[in-house]
Nucleic acid binder design. Structure first.
Lengths: 339, 339
DNA sequence: ATTATCACAGAAAACGCTTTCGTTAAAGAA
DNA sequence: TTCTTTAACGAAAGCGTTTTCTGTGATAAT
C-alpha cells in the first residue's frame, strides 16, 4: 500500500510537506501542493484512518447504541429508520458509524463505554436505551459527546417528537369522527414517549369533554406487537368496549388489529384503530392504517447535526429539539357521522 | 486515558511485558501476568484499537456493502435482517461492522475499495450489490477477503438459498390446492435470485404437467412493492387471469395484494398469492401471507463464519453454500378442492 | 566445573500519520 | 547596506501498540 513516504520519495518533498498538502496547511506553495496531490492521485494513495486517528486523537467514527429489550437490533421498524437517516447525515461529514455493544469478542471490553473507548469513537448516538441503566449513565457521564432521540436526560442532547400533541391531535380527530368511547393502549411507562403519548390522550379527552374511562387505558409495558395484541384482548373483553383505540406505537396497533381480526371483527367497521409512528411497514399493508407520523428523517438528521456540532465545539450547551407530529389519515378509522 | 505505559510504571514491568500479558505470549511468568492483568483491570485500562491496528495491520472491522437501487439502506426488509444476524455472529469474534459507502465526506475516497482501505477493514460482506458494477469488481479483485449472499461470482464466497427449489415447491403446493392457472411475478432478471426463482417456477409447472402461459410470466425488473403492484395490474387485465400468483419476493407480493384489493377483489377468495423470503413484516400483517421462507439467520451466520475463517486463513478455497428453503403456509392461498 | 538449556524480561524498532518548531532564502523596510 | 519579515520547507517527536531480538540468571546436562 502506498503511503506518504512513497509520495515524498517520488515528489522529492518531505513527508511533512506531503501531509501538509492534504491537510490544508498554509505554509506550502501552490506548486508543491499541486504536484503532491496529483502524484498521490496517480499512485492511488488512500490515507490510513488508523494512523491518522492515532496522531490526531480523532477517529471520525460515531458509535450507535441500541439497547432495546425487543431484540430487533438493526431491524427495529422505528429506530432502524432513524439510524439510517442519521447515518446518511453524518457520512456527509466523513463519519462512519459503528455499533456499540458490550461483550465484544474475548477482550476485556465489558461495557458500552469500554467499547467506545476501544474504538475511540468521537461521539455516540444513543438511539434507543433505558436511561436507568447504569451503563448508559456511565456513558453519558463520560466526556464523549452524545445525543439521543425519543428520550430525555438533562445531561445529553435530545431530539423528540411532540408526542403529547400527537395523541392529543389523534383523539381530536377521532372525536370529530363521532367517537366518544376512545381507548388507549399505552406504551412503556418508563419511556418518555410512552408517558407523553398517554398524557396527550388524556388531555385530548378532556379537551373534547369526554370523561376518561379507567378501563379504556390499558397496556403500559412494551411497544410490541404482542403487547398490543394482549391489550386489545382485554379491551375486547369489556362489557362496554370502546369504538376507537389509540395506541402508543404502530407495532401495538398491528397487534391490536390482528387481535380484532382473530376475534372475527372488522376494521374499521367494528373498531377504529389509530397507530403511532408511521413506520415504513404501513405503506405496504393492504389495509391503510391511520397513524400519527413522527418525522423520522428529521429526527435522524437533527440528531446527527447536533452531535457533529458538539464534536467540533466540545463545550456546547445542551440542546433539546421537539419535532412536529402529523396526522396521516388512511383507512382504519371509521366516520360515525355518516353511518 | 490509561495506557500500557501507565500500567508498566505502576507494576514496575516494561511495556513489552505488559503487552505480552494481554496477548497470550508464553515468555512471561504467571506471576507477572496476574499482576499486570489485575492492575490493568483496576486502572480501567482499555486498549486502543487504532494503535493496535497500526501495529498489527488488522483492524477487527468488517465492511458492509449495501449497493441497492431501492435506497432502503439499513431498513431493507430482507438484507437488513441478514446483516443483523451477520453482525451478531462476527461480534462473537470481536469484529465490528462498518458500512462502506463511496463518497465519504470530503476526502479523496471515491470508491468502495478506497473506503475499505481507508478504514483498513479485514474483510467485506457484500450484502447486496450488482456484480456488473466495476466498483464491485474492483473490490472483489482486491486482496480483501469477501463474501456475498444472494448472488454468485466465482471469485468470491457466497451463501445462497435454494431458490430454484423454493419456487418449485411453491407451484407444487399451489397445484396440490387445485390451481392450474399459476402466474409468476419475476424479480430482477439480472439477479441470480430472480433467475433461479423463475427457473423454479417454470420447472415446477412442467413437473405438474401444466403448460406455461406466456402472459402469466410478468415483472422482471425490481423486487419492489411498486413493481409487484404494476405486474399484478397487467395480470388483472388479462382475458383469462390466473387464479394463483407466485412472486419473486414478499415486497412484490405485498404490492400485488394491494393492487388486487384496490381492484375490489379479495384474497384468497379471488386470488391466491405466494410470497418469497418470509420477511419479518409478514408476521404483523392481518392477512397471513403464505410464502417461501429463506433461512435468513443461517444466511447471515454462515456468511459471517466463512468470512472470518477466510480472514484467518487467507488462501482459503472458494466456498458456496446453498441453504434450504421452506414453505410457510398461512392464509393467502385458497384450496380449490374444497370449494 | 563447564556448558547447554530454559524461563523470563526488556530495549528498540516499527506501524503511518500529524504537528510543532526551527531553518533558510528571498523580499521588504530602514 | 543592514535588519526584519515572510514564505516555504523539513527534522523530529509523538500517538499507543506489537514484535523481534538480545540479555540475564537459574537450572539442567555433561
Amino acid at each position: 500500500m502506498v503511503k506518504m513516504k512513497d509520495i515524498a520519495k517520488v515528489t522529492g518533498y518531505s513527508i511533512t510537506t506531503v501531509s501538509k498538502a492534504f491537510n490544508g496547511y498554509k505554509d506550502i506553495s501552490d506548486d508543491a501542493k499541486k504536484i503532491i496531490l496529483k502524484t498521490a492521485d496517480d499512485m492511488g494513495y488512500i490515507p490510513k484512518a488508523n494512523a491518522r486517528s492515532l496522531a490526531t486523537k480523532r477517529s471520525l467514527m460515531i458509535g450507535i447504541i441500541f439497547d432495546e429489550a425487543l431484540g430487533f437490533g438493526i431491524r427495529h421498524p422505528f429506530f432502524g429508520a432513524v439510524i439510517e437517516f442519521f447515518k446518511e447525515e453524518v457520512e456527509k461529514d466523513g463519519y462512519d458509524i459503528i455499533f456499540i455493544s458490550k461483550n465484544i469478542g474475548k477482550s476485556n471490553v465489558k461495557t458500552y463505554l469500554d467499547h467506545c473507548r476501544l474504538r475511540g469513537v468521537d461521539g455516540v448516538f444513543i438511539a434507543c436505551a433505558n436511561f436507568d441503566n447504569p451503563e448508559i449513565q456511565q456513558l453519558i457521564n463520560s466526556n464523549i459527546p452524545s445525543v439521543t432521540v425519543e428520550s430525555f436526560d438533562n445531561k445529553i442532547h435530545s431530539v423528540n417528537s411532540d408526542d403529547f400533541h400527537g395523541l392529543y391531535m389523534g383523539v381530536e380527530y377521532l372525536a370529530r369522527l363521532g367517537h366518544t368511547k376512545i381507548a388507549h393502549i399505552a406504551g412503556d411507562a418508563t419511556a418518555l414517549a410512552g408517558q407523553e403519548r398517554k398524557r396527550g390522550y388524556l388531555a385530548g379527552l378532556k379537551n373534547e369533554g369526554i370523561e376518561a374511562v379507567e378501563d379504556y387505558l390499558v397496556g403500559g409495558n412494551m411497544f410490541s406487537f404482542d403487547s398490543g395484541y394482549k391489550a386489545m384482548k382485554v379491551l375486547l373483553g369489556l362489557d362496554n368496549p370502546p369504538t376507537a383505540i389509540t395506541t402508543s406505537g404502530d407495532m401495538m396497533a398491528l397487534g391490536a388489529i390482528k387481535c380484532i381480526r382473530d376475534a372475527g371483527y372488522h376494521i374499521p367497521r367494528d373498531f377504529s384503530i389509530l397507530g403511532y409512528d408511521n413506520i415504513d411497514m404501513l405503506e405496504y399493508m393492504a389495509l391503510g392504517i391511520t397513524t400519527i407520523a413522527q418525522n423520522v428523517s428529521q429526527m435522524g438528521k437533527k440528531a446527527a447535526n447536533i452531535l457533529v456540532q458538539n464534536i467540533k465545539v466540545p463545550g456546547m450547551n445542551k440542546k433539546e429539539i421537539i419535532l412536529d407530529t402529523k396526522l396521516v389519515i388512511r383507512e382504519s378509522c371509521r366516520d360515525l357521522n355518516q353511518a
